[in-house]
Design a protein around this nucleic acid. Structure first.
Lengths: 345, 345
DNA sequence: GTGAAAGCGCTAACAT
DNA sequence: ATGTTAGCGCTTTCAC
């Protein structure tokens, strides 16, 4: 519990500089010396001290991920990509999870703290000018995931297209009064999906009926939750007016909540109402939920990749990658599927 | 980008020792000095350097979590508890996720590395003597979650009882030929659930039919996966012999896989076969899967709590907490439920 | 109450 | 090829 390079230098009869060189795999060390040092290091069970190293190197081997609501399965899939990319490096991952919108700022502060990490992966968080300044002032490399900003590297999905895919599909299936359950418009992805919805309707000469668009709220974050979707669907059903014949939700979890509300109201899916979500989290396949799939794993992997690239080469041009979403059709939009897992009533 | 205590000392006309005292909130500083220092620190945008701090303090403000298969939803729930407890401290969380059984060892090594963290949370990983020695040699506080070992603090669920609860319930529902889809017996929780299964059958004077017990394998880990459960169910169905009338799986994800196999085989749940899982991950509620609920959130929270306690007080006695599981009855074991989210065929 | 000084364990010039 | 030395930024005795 406390073997240092001094110990192994003494034991091996060399200087600490040589030990450091050996430990770090530098070239210019005699083979004999190297082996001797390595032998002693092994014998004494030497382990380099992480903090001392970061301090001396002026660079940490940690990257931080700031994640709103780690509990959302969307992020887990993204994180899997991040982890896989990281496994190829020798960086470790510090996770900062926020539980509310406000907490994101605090967690970002912590992540950005000096000497803590070599760079930050910021998930799904809109950047106001203040925050932008804060990041730039920190001088740290930051890569955005599921969000864009001209000043930073980013990887995201084409949400506009995604919204269009969902709605065109519903139109194809014969729906005409298509409702939208969207997260709060402060979420750029939600706003873009909304816009895609409008465009797709427009393509079919349908005007967007404001009564059919409801914002799902959870009072904590942007409303991407099962409970918020449930509540939004209830509001939609209670609102009077002619009932919708389909609903597009800006995330799968919201769609789940919506389906629960429909079930309770005795409205059958897909007979009485078609449902399409967004994301394609694991549960959706099992529930037969049609959805617009985001390449979550790739987003994570690419995000980490971009971040590493910038750490290596801070001067690089800012790089934005926008991935294509893909429509995944299942039973909830009326297409019989071969083998969804499901429990009979 | 690089304001140090020297800068603020110079600017405030005090020594670096005083700056350090102020920054760390020590008592014995004159109010006037404190305010002066604080003002300068704020103005210059001072941020303490994390690594320098850890080095000088001889203690990191990070704890590490070693998690096999982060992608498993069980761990997400546990992690949520960990995060919530950590939010009350000023520790940060380093996450080491393994993708295979072998990787756990490597990740544990990294987590245990000197100067990296103040303690380690090890999830769901059996400890052989070699690994035990390794941990003890590291001198680091380690708390086990979903696993026990006499030498370390641990929080786990009463898996024996859990197995009994599941099987007694199936017996109550009239099942007599109850199959078990278990993870590999190297997983102590799986072995314990198996034992609970045997005991419950014994209580009803039923002998354990070896043909009804199948081990689900995924070649990577202990077999806690949807695919492994699917494959195990298929094996069970193909094995000839009289068909089981119920199946208990040692995790919900395995149960999901099993249900998919049943569906493909045209066997209805619960009419032809009752199914009970273990864990109660979020998806189970939506799918109407009966299960034995583990208090995942509490396990995480308590694990973090124990770890902090030991970091504060390394000399404490080893503490083991075993939480009680709870049966959650849903449609898959034949009990009509009021409002499961579900898509009609 | 405050300052001087000695580390914490390591890296990276700069010498030799 | 190897050693000497000066930091990295901070904490913490020990004096005063």
């Amino acid at each position: 519990m406390g073997v240092t390079i001094y110990d192994i230098a003494r034991e091996a009869g060399v200087s600490i500089a040589t030990v450091s060189r050996v430990v770090n795999g530098h070239e210019r060390v005699a083979d004999a010396t190297r082996e001797q040092v390595l032998a002693v290091a092994l014998e004494l069970g030497y382990q380099p001290h992480a903090s001392a190293r970061s301090l001396a190197r002026r660079r940490s081997n940690v990257i931080a991920a700031v994640i709103p609501m780690l509990t959302n399965y969307f992020f887990i899939e993204v994180l899997r990509g991040v982890q896989d990319r990281m496994a190829e490096s020798d960086f470790d991952l510090l996770v900062f999870s926020a539980r509310t919108l406000d907490e994101v700022g605090d967690q970002l502060d912590r992540a950005l703290a000096k000497g803590r990490s070599a760079g930050v992966l910021l998930f799904s968080s809109p950047l106001d000018p203040e925050r932008t300044r804060q990041i730039i002032a920190s001088g740290q490399p930051v890569t955005l995931v599921d969000e864009t900003h001209e000043a930073f590297d980013a990887v995201s999905t084409d949400n506009l297209l995604g919204g269009q895919l969902a709605v065109r599909h519903l139109l194809d299936r014969g729906a005409r009064r298509i409702a939208l359950i969207m997260a709060r418009p402060e979420s750029i992805p939600a706003a873009d999906r909304h816009e895609g919805y409008r465009i797709a309707l427009g393509e079919h000469g349908i005007d967007c009926d404001p009564a059919l668009v409801v914002v799902s709220e959870d009072g904590l974050y942007h409303g991407y939750s099962e409970a918020a979707g449930y509540e939004a669907m209830q509001r939609l059903l209670r609102s009077g007016g002619p009932a919708p014949d389909a609903v597009f939700a800006t995330s799968d979890v919201q769609a789940l909540g919506a389906m629960r509300a429909l079930q309770e109201a005795g409205i059958r899916v897909p007979e009485d109402m078609l449902v399409v979500g967004f994301d394609d989290i694991m549960i959706s396949r099992h529930l037969g939920l049609s959805t617009v799939r985001q390449p979550m794993y790739e987003m994570g992997r690419l995000g980490a990749d971009k971040l590493f690239a910038r750490i290596e080469n801070p001067g690089h041009e800012v790089s934005h990658t926008i991935l294509a979403p893909r429509l995944v059709v299942r039973r909830s939009s009326g297409v019989p599927s071969t083998a969804p897992t499901r429990v009979a009533s």
